[in-house]
Simulated scan of single mutants.
Amino acid sequence: MLHLDDIASHERLFAWTDRLTAQVIEPLSRGEAAAYLPYDWNARAFGPALPLPPEPVILLEGVGAGRRALRPFLAELLWMELPREESWARGRLRDGAAQREFWDGWVEAERAHFADDPTRPHAGLLVRQADQGYEVLPGPARHRGSGQGVTHSDGSTPMW
């Protein structure tokens, strides 16, 4: 699993596609192990490289994972159906006072990202929190026959 929180940074909340492509997508698409520099949100610096072997499935998790530049590399796109305000409240609670200023900027950056590059319409599956676990439903793209479910090229590692 690759968390996009490790790829993004304070300076590049959503402008990280080039880093992800160079450090992860390109090596994996060649069947090679990837290595990425994880971002430390408290130290505001990138740490030492972490390996990411070319597994049969790699879960790419986080806001922006379904952006148009990445969709050709995805085997499937899942959308976590959660009201924005609830998601933001969970993040603020998780990160505490130390990241209060960050969250003020994040909310506007996320709104701008999805206004320019919506993800939900391209999701093959919707995931909703239920009373006991999660419920998985067909997404908007499944209803119109998405091209998801295949990898970018033969032999590449699919990212979900």
Rank of each mutant, 00 (worst) to 15 (best):
M1L: 10
M1D: 14
L2V: 09
H3P: 13
L4R: 01
D6G: 04
D6Q: 04
A8W: 08
E11D: 07
R12C: 09
R12I: 07
F14Q: 05
A15G: 12
R19F: 05
R19L: 12
A22N: 13
A22H: 14
A22Y: 06
Q23A: 14
I25W: 15
E26Q: 14
L28Y: 04
L28K: 11
R30K: 09
R30T: 08
G31K: 10
G31A: 10
E32R: 13
A33M: 11
A33G: 13
A33Y: 12
A35H: 07
A35K: 03
Y36T: 09
Y36D: 09
P38V: 04
P38C: 07
P38K: 08
P38A: 06
Y39S: 01
Y39T: 07
W41P: 02
N42L: 11
N42S: 10
A45Y: 02
G47D: 15
P48T: 14
L50E: 15
L50W: 12
L50M: 09
L50H: 11
P53R: 02
E55R: 05
P56S: 06
I58C: 04
L59D: 09
L60T: 00
G66F: 03
G66D: 02
R67H: 06
A69F: 08
L70I: 12
R71H: 04
P72Q: 08
P72H: 10
F73I: 05
A75D: 13
E76T: 12
W79Y: 01
W79R: 01
P83A: 00
R84Q: 14
E85K: 01
W88Y: 09
A89W: 07
A89H: 09
G91W: 10
G91Q: 09
L93K: 14
L93A: 14
D95G: 07
D95H: 01
A97N: 06
A97G: 08
A97I: 05
A98S: 06
R100Q: 12
E101D: 15
F102D: 14
D104I: 05
V107Q: 11
V107L: 06
A109S: 15
A112W: 04
H113G: 06
F114T: 08
F114H: 10
D117G: 03
P118R: 02
T119D: 15
P121W: 05
H122G: 02
A123Q: 06
G124F: 12
L125Y: 04
L125R: 15
L126H: 06
L126D: 02
V127C: 00
R128A: 02
R128M: 07
A130H: 01
A130Q: 00
D131P: 03
D131Y: 00
Q132K: 13
P138T: 04
P140F: 05
H143K: 08
S146D: 14
T151G: 13
S153L: 14
D154R: 15
D154K: 15
D154G: 07
G155W: 03
G155I: 03
T157G: 12
T157N: 10
M159L: 15
M159N: 09
M159F: 12
